[in-house]
Amino acid sequence: MLILSIASVSFVFLIGIGLYWRAAPLFNENTLYSLFRSSEWAPSSGKFGFYPFIMGTLWVTLIAIVVALPLCLLTGVYLTEYAKSSVRRVMLPLVNILAGIPPVIYGVWGIFFVVPIVREYVAPRFTEYSSGYTVLTGGVVLAVMIFPILVSIVSEVLKTIPKELKDASLSLGATKWETIKKVVLKRALPGIIAATVLAVSRAFGETIAVLMVCGNVPVAPTSVFDGGYPLPALIANNFGEMMSIPLYDSALMFAALLLFVIIFLFNLVSRIILNRIEHKYSS
């Protein structure tokens, strides 16, 4: 079992090293700084600027979390604290079914449902013209996709808060809502952060559904109504095509490496935050 665990951990490093090795030719002609900062994406003339894709990824993921997290927290609180047990028994399995729907179906739903709504109703209020294929659309679709995992983990975390702790707050004359805000959510914070980390990692890597709805224009978005081109979409759209262009496959490998590093760093940072919070409040 030790060997198996070592093997599985070493896969992570092997993937990292493999990606680096394949992406290496790109570094001969470009500095790392120019790869990150340049917005020029013209593979046929050898110009590879990843800035638009990094920003596309960050925008879509950020929007997804901003949309999903408050909804999931309220849903989790409702299901664990207010809902009758009959409602709870029906709701949680239903939410979990959402998790099993293939991403491509979310993509189709996004095209037929979210894209028109953004184009016809939301965007005209704020901007002159939008195709509907925007980072906002991608974020919303992604939010729906990470909803199940967030709701079920948040509910599990809230369920572990001891009743006596809530009673302690209630017996001091706090209302139920005050108790939830000041005690339950506070105590659940490490778990909520962990759930968010999982959801964000999933969101970073989500490819198909996002690719279908967020426009795929290689320009860094400046508002939520601009199109975007996240890293996974870049790889999926172009891999296997146009491989005759020099350095193109290295560039795609570099995109994968970037994604890998972003997720790795994100997990690392959140792990550190989590440790600090746990250290502060656990006995």
């Binding site: 009673d167 302690a168 017996s171 001091l172 004359g173 706090a174 005690v183 105590r187």
Partner: peptide
């Protein structure tokens, strides 16, 4: 809430708020 304010509760094990 008014009723509960009139009574302090001390449970079996201490549950300090976080």
């Amino acid at each position: 809430t008014h009723i509960r304010k009139k009574m302090g509760l001390l449970s079996q094990r201490p549950y300090p708020l976080p």
